[in-house]
Every structure is written in structure tokens, then in C-alpha cells.
Simulated assay, not measured.
Amino acid sequence: MTSSEKPHTVSSFDEDLLHMRTLVIQMGALAHAQVSMAIDVLEALDASAARAIVANDGQIDRLQVEAELLAVQIFSRHAPLAEDLRDVLASLRVVSALERVGDYAKNIARRTVRMAELSQNGAVDAVGELGQGARALLRDVMAAFLDRDVAKAASVVAADEAVDRNYNKAFGTLLNAAEQPGAPVESLTHLQFIAKHFERIADQATNIAEQIQYAEGGAIPAERHTPADDVD
């Protein structure tokens, strides 16, 4: 058997790239679960379950650190070029976006705890459609990442406009409610922040979609990430 006929073996580089994708997929699953639970606990004003969301955020943070350390190893060991370099860079940006999603879910949970302590549900229904839309975008974009599906990623970018419209609608509803006599203003203020967090989750899903397009040979996406202090 000549050297060209030897059975193919997965290189350490291939293994590292696969490990990176696996970490991103794990982070995506955890982030989606956190957002889903945040929606559920908000609807029920379940303070105990909301506190569990806050505690679980550390899992996402640990995966982010692992992914960043792996990227350093990939750059130092393999010096990737062309599409491999784009793949690693895009994965790092996706990791950052997912960590932000986890932070937003955690902050929604924290505000839910405060609302439960106030025994004021305010107008929770006003943000229900917004939350569902943000969760759907996150689910769809992680499916696009798994499948390397550029068309599906593009559909996520397009769908973000509907979430923005729902955000404007929800914010207007909450603002009007706060202006009514005897309104639970503190609770409604928490809901306004929660609405913004859901809108930011959708923005991060859009960021991930653009990184999928970049990894598959597209142009470098415009900077859309929210400021580092855009969490509470």
C-alpha cells in the first residue's frame, strides 16, 4: 500500500475544528434553554425558577472560556488560513454573541424575581409575542449554524425586522400602561427593560446569522454587537 492509499485519519486540526463547533452548539443549546425558561418564569412570575436561571448562567460562561482557549491553541498550533481561519473567527464571534444571550436571559430572570417580590404582574402579556419571536430566531439561527445553511441564516436576518416592530409595539403598550392612574410603575419599568433584553437577544441571533454567512465565504459583516454595558 502506497502512502496515498493509507486510510484517512482525522488530523488534530480537524479534531480541534470539530471541538470548536461542538462547543458552539453546546452553548447555543444552553442559551436557547435559558431564554425558554426565562419566558416561562416571566409568565408565571416564578421567583424560584428564575433564580435557577441566574445560577445556570455560569455554564455558558465556562464554555465561552473553553472555546476562547481552544481558539488560541488552534492559532498557535495550526496557523489556519482562508476558510479555516474564517471558520474559527466566526465561531469566536458566535461564542461571544451566545454569552450575551445568556446574560440577557439572566437579567430577565433577575427582573422577574423583583416583580414577583412586588406581587405585581404589570402587563406581562405585552412582551409575550416579543419573547417568543426572539426565541424563535435563536432556535433558527443555531439550526443554520449546525447545517452551515446560508439561506436559513439570511432568513433570520430578514426576520429580525418583525421582532423590532414587536418591540416598538410592546414598549408603547408598557409606556401607556405606566401613565394610567394607579399603575404598577415599578413592575412596568422592569417589563420595559425585559422587552429591551428580548429585542437584544434577537439582535444577537442576527449577529450569529451574519457570522454564518461570513464563515461560508461572505463579506465581513457590519458591527452590530450591543455595547458591553447593555446589561444590568
Rank of each mutant, 00 (worst) to 15 (best):
R200Q: 04
S48D: 14
M27R: 07
S187M: 05
D147F: 08
D140G: 12
A33S: 08
G182W: 13
G133T: 11
I74Y: 01
A219E: 14
S3V: 13
N176L: 08
A116P: 11
E43F: 11
S155Q: 13
N56K: 04
Q213C: 10
L146F: 10
V150E: 07
D103T: 01
A31S: 15
V113C: 06
T22R: 10
A82H: 08
L23I: 15
D57W: 00
Q192P: 02
Q26T: 14
Q59K: 14
V65H: 05
H78V: 06
T22V: 05
Q132A: 14
A116T: 12
P227D: 12
R100H: 02
D203W: 06
Q26D: 06
S48M: 12
R100Q: 00
Y214K: 02
P181Q: 09
T173A: 13
N168M: 12
E83V: 12
G102D: 02
M1T: 13
E5L: 13
V35Y: 00
A134S: 15
A228C: 04
N207V: 10
L23N: 11
E66S: 13
S3F: 15
V231D: 01
S187L: 04
D149A: 08
A105H: 03
N56D: 14
V65A: 12
G182F: 08
L70M: 07
A177W: 03
V113K: 01
Y104A: 00
A143I: 14
A90R: 03
P181T: 09
R100M: 01
H78Q: 14
M20Y: 08
V88A: 02
D16L: 02
E186Y: 03
E15M: 10
A116D: 01
L174V: 03
K6D: 15
P184W: 05
P80R: 05
A153N: 06
V94L: 03
E66W: 07
S48L: 11
R86Y: 09
I39K: 10
L69P: 01
L174T: 06
A33D: 15
I74K: 02
Q26C: 07
D16S: 12
R139Y: 09
A38I: 00
R114E: 08
S36G: 15
A215S: 14
P221A: 07
Q59I: 13
H32F: 03
T206I: 03
A154M: 15
T206P: 05
E68N: 13
L69K: 07
G172Y: 05
I53K: 00
L137Y: 11
G128Q: 10
Q34E: 14
S91D: 10
S187H: 04
Y167F: 15
A170K: 03
L130K: 10
I39L: 12
Q64L: 15
A90K: 10
P184C: 04
I208F: 00
V141P: 01
